[in-house]
Design a protein around this nucleic acid. Sequence first.
DNA 1: TTGCTTTTCCCCTTTTCTTCGCCTATGCTT
DNA 2: AAGCATAGGCGAAGAAAAGGGGAAAAGCAA
Lengths: 208, 208
Amino acid sequence: MALTPRQKQVLDFIAAYQVENGYSPSYEEIARALDLASIATVHKHISALQKKNYLSRGHNQSRSVDVAPRYLQEQRRNRVQASLEVPLVGTIAAGRPVETFDEKASVSFADFVGHKDTYALRVRGDSMIEDHICEGDMILVENTNEARDGDIVVALVGGSETTLKRFYHEPGNVIRLQPANSTMSPIRVPAGEVSVQGRLLAVLRKYQ
Amino acid sequence: MALTPRQKQVLDFIAAYQVENGYSPSYEEIARALDLASIATVHKHISALQKKNYLSRGHNQSRSVDVAPRYLQEQRRNRVQASLEVPLVGTIAAGRPVETFDEKASVSFADFVGHKDTYALRVRGDSMIEDHICEGDMILVENTNEARDGDIVVALVGGSETTLKRFYHEPGNVIRLQPANSTMSPIRVPAGEVSVQGRLLAVLRKYQ
DNA sequence: TTGCTTTTCCCCTTTTCTTCGCCTATGCTT
DNA sequence: AAGCATAGGCGAAGAAAAGGGGAAAAGCAA
């Protein structure tokens, strides 16, 4: 589902316009910007972009096109930057010397992201503290709707609450969202009222 | 299913073009870049690459070739891959929706390494468990000999044991190395017998 | 209702991909 | 040496997608 040059131009213009004005351009404005004589052409481009999941829009609603998160992510990913790697020199343990190993000599961010569709969140609250995920930690989340029992997921419950919990199926088409905090109770809801927004890939914690 | 030299050239060009432009090259452009007179030759290369699972494409769709994850992985292994950034989309907490902030924010490895002399270690044992540093976690360590009270440091004690502990000065030129585990006792040694090998910068934990 | 906007229909040209036949090397197998 | 497979290459014809247009119908908000 790759973009064509013209489609990318349309998408770039819409994204820039939104940043500039805070709302979306009309077809007329897009046509002027791209030097098109007919708004029918704009409509075709936008339909194509929507089919490729780069845009969303409401039917017959004016100025309702909106760039999908996918685009913003791809933009960032294409920002070329020097690769940062640090040497991985061994393991450390209480009461033992550093054991050096030479198998994998370095660590890079790619080892922690590794997926195309990833985003980050900052953790607030202590609901996963017994899994050693703390307030202020950064988590990397794979953007997926699928989860297996025991996965730690970002879950949207009842359309309004988003939360980080362990995911389990229970009998009767019920999902249990299990906090890792003995002072909190698990959430049990019908499967239809939960949507998985992502799966935990990594925890990053920075000191100082 | 290894690549031939020419196939690798085609693949590398396509990947570079995509990063550069945000969309795929046409056969015509590939032919020009590789100094080929016929786009039929390009077509053959691309078909071969698809058969070897290095590319995907849509039938009869222009500029639809896309490099497969396989290629990106192999690149990453060769350290040619640029450092990745992931969008930071907000905070997550139990019982509250994701609060998105400023769409521009992103996280990169640079945020965790900085420009310091840094190395990585894998953690073994539970001596820092109450600071939520677990067995198997990767830690990033700044290569320094200096530490302030309360810093978590990599310390070499008595020339043989290396350990991860919190660092404190005590009266009488004594250093206390404090584990974060109530079942363990702090280590108290004369300052001359301890050398700080590094200071904890970050904890990275990977799932799956 | 009016004005702004989106959607749809039918038309067109250009770009791009696919396929076909044919060619030259190189290396491996009888 | 002959036969065969494979990588690499060329040119041209045909077909489909991308890109573009005008006009009119249809939605929506003031």
